[in-house]
Design a protein around this nucleic acid. Structure first.
Lengths: 261, 261
DNA sequence: AAGTGGTCTAGACCACTTG
DNA sequence: AAGTGGTCTAGACCACTTG
């Protein structure tokens, strides 16, 4: 076993599993445990620190969720390597296919659902149509260079897309051909943890965090042409926003800022 | 015990705790368990479903992280109530104080750190100065109507803010007075899970998801005047972005879109 | 005082990889 | 075959609330 973990010191205040978490995190921060290095087996860690294996597992499970460690059944537990993150600008309304190609990565999709079907209550409300109306629904896992990146659920009115089976790669290229490509969109961004099913689809540990983006896209006339909810793996995906102090030509906003900031 | 949970059916494939999770999630989705309703005690659930209490706790712990349930030690486990979420636009560079006041909420801060101190390597790199140079560091918990909303860590060059102790409410109002308010910023947005310490500061369960925003703010001359990392509780905070298909007057970008989308 | 969630143990067996 | 993580149990005791 690695010398750091002989007679591992877990003295201190508070629950044992937290002290163990702190001790392991400390070893990584200190560089005593290098990136990619294997931790001792859980049973050895338990013996060395004098705690039960259940408690060791709890400490490791939480550090794994926090992104510090990775576990592979049968293989071991390792210090996570920092990955090169993908940056997605929040300025331009672009497609996943386009974005990945622009980065020199090869995109592909694994379809979960693709067809015409009745809108759920949520979908109907967001699309501004009656519940039960026929819509095009597209659900897929998005890959870049064979790595699962995101789970995407799209809904479009049937008059915007009446042949969803024709969508293979980029949805927006199909909409462009039909002259129904959206010109603007609003996105609501939140953080969540993936449930068991989602985690499996994205090949990450259950309980891993993700960015959830709910996009509502409009055509030039202001009609909703697409509503898409996407779960992005947060271990590889960052969003980039640019903000300015005042809107151009907005004297009113400027005065308000001066008072309230 | 609630009738749904008498002889709880956890038959099926896969691990017991996942079947139990699915059964509880199903009861909530069906409306058999209403928002705010109490679940039976863990010991009763274990008996009713014929599994051990450890397994019941695992199922409940994961549903709690996913936001479906809330637990209060000594009191019980309850179906989470949907909360009114705060929407934060990603367009305008505004201050927390201003944003909360605009919503009719009362902001205040609890200081974790506030003073002049040597820059860490990370801070120095982000501010574009030499490591160890004296900077102003401001760390605090941000509250709105006495609810903890975010943990904020700011770093500013000393020439921008040489008296950090003077900052009480809005940092930007102090910078405005000194003529050093930033005019634009870039933000990098990611999702993470809160560690034990952060979760305690924000009064949420350990392992809860959060939005992490790293802001770099610039003055009119393009100098970095502020670098701030903020953890926002994701159960109350949403970000709102607006995207457009093409940049105004950018014919080149338009042609590129046509090809690649 | 009684009830409920939180922490912890020792041990068993299963699933997966070859450290 | 041996090693490692994954699931599960029965039971004990602690911390906190009053369901």
């Amino acid at each position: 076993m690695h010398t750091i973990f002989e007679n591992l010191d877990v003295s201190g205040e508070g629950p044992l599993y937290r002290r163990l978490k702190a001790a392991i995190a400390e070893a990584v921060a200190n560089g005593k445990l290098e990136r990619g290095a294997a931790l001792p087996p859980e049973r050895d860690l338990a013996e060395a620190s004098g705690v039960s294996r259940v408690t060791v597992r709890r400490a490791i499970a939480e550090l794994t969720r926090e992104g510090l460690l990775t576990r592979r059944q049968g293989a071991g537990t390792f210090v996570a390597r920092p990955v090169e993150r993908i940056e997605q600008s929040l300025k331009r309304l672009s497609s996943f296919t386009e974005d990945m190609q622009a980065r020199g990565m090869k995109p592909h999709s694994q379809w979960l659902e693709r067809g015409l079907m009745p809108a759920s209550d949520d979908e109907a409300r967001r699309l501004g149509i009656a519940a039960g109306t026929q819509i095009a629904r597209l659900s897929r896992i998005r890959f870049a260079d064979n790595m699962p990146m995101a789970i995407e659920h799209s809904a479009l009115p049937q008059d915007v897309l009446d042949a969803p089976q024709e969508v293979n790669g980029s949805l927006y290229s199909v909409l462009s051909e039909r002259g129904r490509r959206p010109v603007r969109a609003t996105e609501r961004i939140s953080a969540c943890v993936l449930d068991d099913h989602q985690a499996e689809l994205l090949a990450v540990s259950p309980g891993a965090p993700a960015l959830f983006i709910l996009r509502t896209a409009f055509d030039a006339e202001g009609r909703v042409v697409e509503v898409t909810g996407t779960y992005y793996r947060s271990d590889v995906y960052d969003l980039i926003a640019e903000l300015t102090f005042q809107s151009v030509g907005s004297a009113v906003a400027y005065v308000a800022d001066q008072d309230a900031v």
